[in-house]
């Protein structure tokens, strides 16, 4: 970005708040925004406004639903048709390689493999977080399995999305410091359901806890949930 490695004006920094909130700034820009936030409480308040907007924009988009299975059927019918037409003159390069992979059997196998890989990835990430906590009360394997949430059914909860820069060790330390634990996820949009208090606290206290999460640079979004 054009302002990298230069000192940015207050206006420049304010303009970058939406990208800071979503964790899409480069390290230099993020550092400058963080320094400005630490020095200027009014700017920190405006970051809260950005996070409110982000939360509602996400909810609005999530409400749009998902495409029907018809899309995939039509797509692979069309691809199959084009493959048949193009079968005689061989394709070259990456296109040829991709086309060769798209036999109906290969597509079915790839779909099954993709689902397994994505589920394993989500499970492994969550397991790493939970194991790293070393919490005797959270001796479950993955947060996406109902049995995994044993012992954490009660309490107060929030939906939390971590920034792309946050690594497992940082997240684990952060959750430890808050006596919090991931109980479910990831859900669409990279959201995790996190128990933020062991007891069912009141609305004001829950909002305070969620604000503490939101103020962390590891968290891009946090909202109270049931």
């Amino acid at each position: 970005m054009s302002k990298t490695n230069q000192t940015m004006s207050a206006d420049d920094i304010e303009a970058l708040l939406p990208w800071y909130a979503t964790g899409t700034l480069n390290r230099d820009e993020a550092d400058q925004v963080e320094a400005a936030l630490a020095a200027n409480p009014a700017l920190a308040r405006r970051l809260d406004l950005v996070r409110e907007e982000m939360t509602e924009a996400i909810l609005l988009n999530e409400a749009l639903g998902v495409p029907s299975a018809r899309v995939m059927e039509n797509l692979f019918k069309a691809i199959d048709k084009e493959r048949k037409i193009a079968r005689a003159p061989a394709r070259r390069g990456f296109g040829a390689w991709l086309a060769d992979l798209l036999t109906p059997r290969a597509v079915a196998l790839a779909a099954a493999a993709a689902v397994i890989i994505i589920m394993l990835q989500a499970g492994v990430i969550t397991t790493l977080v939970l194991q790293d906590r070393g919490d005797a009360g959270s001796s479950f394997e993955t947060a996406s399995v109902p049995a995994a949430t044993r012992g954490v059914e009660t309490g107060s909860f929030a939906l939390v999305r971590f920034t792309p820069q946050a690594n497992i060790a940082d997240i684990s330390r952060f959750l430890d410091s808050k006596d919090a634990v991931i109980v479910d996820g990831p859900h669409p949009g990279g959201m995790y359901r996190v128990r933020v208090a062991r007891t069912n606290v009141g609305k004001d206290e829950l909002e305070g806890l969620v604000r503490e999460f939101q103020s962390s640079n590891l968290v891009s979004m946090a909202v109270p949930t049931e």
Partner: peptide, 19 residues
């Protein structure tokens, strides 16, 4: 292609639906 489609179809759909 299948993985690409599975991973991105929902967000692309929502982006297009907005238009």
């Amino acid at each position: 292609m299948q993985v690409l489609f599975a991973r991105h179809q929902v967000r692309v759909y929502r982006f297009v639906l907005r238009f």
